[in-house]
Simulated assay, not measured.
Amino acid sequence: MVAEPHIGVLALQGDVREHVVSLEECGARASPVRRAGELSTVDGIVIPGGESTTMSRLLEAFDLLEPLRRHLAEGMPAYGSCAGMILLAGKVLDGRPDQHQLGALDMIVRRNAFGRQVDSFEEDLDVTGVGGGPMHAVFIRAPWVESVEPAVEVLARVPETPAAGRAAGRIVAVRQGSVLATAFHSELTGDRRMHELFAGMVGAR
């Protein structure tokens, strides 16, 4: 057990500060990660929302792509929200041909599945392993999970309601071992339960 896990937040683009604040409010120590050497100083990594193709290019430009892949392959816990979920997936639909994947989750995601930014969507979700009632989720140009392999545990789906439209029943939160991912932006609502779950995963290593 790690009493105060040190969790890095990939700080190339996206909601870095929001994730740092959320993690610190859960009792973790959090810091931005911009260089490969900093990966070795943290117990886990958060990959925030942003724009997945831009983040993919920046990972390569900052020489972080292969070191991050290596750390994930060696078991480093990771949590990806929105674009972070896309990057952690083994395969992405509707992505650019040159987009890099980290391959830490055995699943296929569809990029921008919920539509353009103006088509942002909110819903209350029941999340497996998270107590305290439904979680209000905010989806902004979000992906959803098309399919998962048996090793991937489905934690949440969009409820089957008229308001959900074609998103009804889609997978939006998953876990595979020490890797967690959500299609929604858990850092934007003030609900820290996803970050508490992840901090607990990191601390239990």
Rank of each mutant, 00 (worst) to 15 (best):
D126E: 10
F62S: 12
I45V: 11
I47F: 10
L23N: 01
A167K: 07
T54R: 13
S52H: 08
L12R: 09
T189L: 01
L188V: 12
A156I: 09
Q101Y: 00
H136W: 09
R141E: 08
D43K: 04
G80F: 09
Y79S: 11
Q176H: 07
K91E: 14
G75F: 01
F62Y: 15
L58M: 15
Q117Y: 12
M194T: 10
P159H: 03
F139C: 13
A163L: 05
R192Y: 12
R111Y: 04
E4K: 14
A181R: 08
L68A: 12
R157T: 14
A163P: 03
H71Y: 00
H100S: 14
K91D: 07
L180V: 12
E123L: 01
V20I: 15
V202A: 08
G131Y: 07
G14L: 03
T54W: 06
D126L: 02
L102V: 13
D124P: 02
G177R: 08
G115N: 11
F198G: 07
R96A: 15
A89D: 05
R69V: 08
G165N: 10
A156C: 14
T182K: 05
R69A: 11
W144N: 15
V42I: 03
A204P: 01
G200R: 14
R116S: 13
G95R: 04
A167P: 12
E66Q: 15
T161H: 01
N112R: 08
R110F: 11
E38G: 03
G37D: 12
T182E: 00
S52N: 13
P48H: 06
I86P: 03
A11T: 10
R205C: 06
G200W: 06
V127R: 01
V21L: 02
G190N: 05
E66C: 11
L88V: 02
V148Q: 09
I47M: 10
A61D: 15
V42E: 04
R166L: 10
L65R: 01
G177A: 02
V42Q: 04
G115H: 15
I108K: 09
L58P: 10
L188F: 03
G95K: 12
V92L: 08
L87D: 02
M55V: 05
L105F: 09
L188C: 01
G103W: 09
G132R: 02
D119L: 01
V179L: 07
E149P: 07
D119Y: 04
I140M: 14
S52F: 07
A104W: 13
L23W: 04
R34W: 00
G200M: 09
P134Y: 05
R69Y: 03
G49F: 02
L93V: 06
V21M: 05
S178D: 14
G165S: 14
F121W: 15
G169M: 04
I45L: 02
F198C: 02
P32L: 00
V16A: 03
F114I: 10
V158D: 13
G131W: 05
G200D: 13
T189N: 00
H71S: 10
P150Y: 13
M201P: 10
D43V: 12
E38N: 02
G165K: 10
H195D: 11
D124H: 11
A104I: 06
G37M: 04
A113K: 09
H19E: 09
A61Y: 15
A204G: 03
T189Y: 00
